[in-house]
């Protein structure tokens, strides 16, 4: 509870003159381990979606830290751009590529993984010593710079000193968008086939244009596997579903006929002539 209060006070009125308040300190020590753990999830998560989710966690926490660091504008942008757009894009692509692509941990490159881990730790070590060496500056804080509100301060610099950069970055974004379209574009190798082309092709092939006849209907048995009878009394083999025919589950008319009980005349009217499926065409 106290932590919550502290966090709240941190977000409300952050330190003046770059000195950190206790509230910010507490916030940091809560968020930092969470972030590091979540980041480690990126290395160890077996499923890609979990990795993506842990990255989202890191990014949201970063946004909170930005706000705490007197950069509310960046914090909002972080949430919108990274968690809102970038990570969602990642998830989309994950879905597209296949969520269930699990990574096997058996590495194909021999000792690569251990060497990589070693140097990853080494990188952290040397960089930390660099940081501790270099960052020995008395913090000045942004109270003065943020006087007219942080977004307007940032805007003044972006549209002042960096306006050319802004234009260039805009061009870069458009180029990237066009690039993405070009990269994912599928070249059409043949002319597009529409309804009209399909119809034309069917007529040209001389196929049956009407719907296929429905299978035979004997109400007292499963009618789907019995062929219908044509006007000439012959069974129409293709009226039975192709699947049933291939599976061999089709029954002939004669077979069905044999099972019928001739005595009971309920239901449908039994044919007066014997139907065996082998009558002559009249």
């Amino acid at each position: 509870m106290t932590t919550m209060l502290h966090a709240g006070s941190v977000l409300a009125g952050i330190a003046e003159a770059g000195r950190t308040t206790t509230g910010e300190e507490v916030l940091f020590w809560i968020l930092a381990p969470v972030m590091v753990l979540a980041a480690l999830g990126l290395i160890f998560a077996r499923r890609t979606v979990y990795a993506a989710l842990s990255v989202i966690l890191v990014m949201v926490s970063l946004a909170v830290l930005y706000v705490a660091q007197e950069a509310p504008f960046l914090g909002i942008v972080q949430v919108i751009v990274y968690t809102g757009a970038v990570m969602m894009l990642f998830l989309f692509v994950l879905m597209l590529v296949g969520v269930d692509v699990a990574d096997t941990f058996a590495d194909t490159l021999g000792a690569h993984r251990w060497v990589a881990a070693l140097f990853g730790i080494g990188l952290g070590a040397v960089l930390i010593s660099v940081v501790l060496r270099a960052a020995d500056i008395a913090p000045q804080g942004l109270t003065a710079a943020n006087e007219g509100g942080n977004p307007s301060g940032v805007a003044r610099i972006i549209f002042g000193d960096y306006v050319i950069t802004l234009q260039v970055v805009g061009i870069l974004l458009i180029t990237a968008a066009v690039g993405a379209i070009v990269l994912t574009h599928k070249e059409r190798l043949v002319a597009k086939v529409g309804q009209r082309e399909r119809a034309d092709a069917r007529i040209a092939a001389g196929e049956v244009l009407t719907p296929l006849p429905a299978p035979g209907v004997y109400a007292r048995s499963n009618a789907m596997d019995v062929p219908a009878l044509g006007p000439d009394g012959r069974p129409l083999e293709h009226s039975v579903s192709r699947v049933l025919r291939i599976r061999g589950q089709q029954r002939s008319v004669a077979e069905v006929h044999a099972h019928l009980d001739p005595g009971t005349g309920t239901g449908s009217t039994p044919p007066e002539r014997t139907i065996t499926g082998e009558e002559q065409v009249r």
Binding site: V115, A116, G122, L123, V126, V130
Partner: peptide
């Protein structure tokens, strides 16, 4: 090896060595 990852590893090794040297010199 032709594997991107091993090239990246070589880069990291180089960077670590470089920063370490700079640190040691300073």
């Amino acid at each position: 090896t032709g594997f991107v990852r091993s090239y990246a590893l070589q880069m990291v090794v180089g960077i670590v060595a470089l920063v370490a040297v700079v640190l040691a010199v300073r």
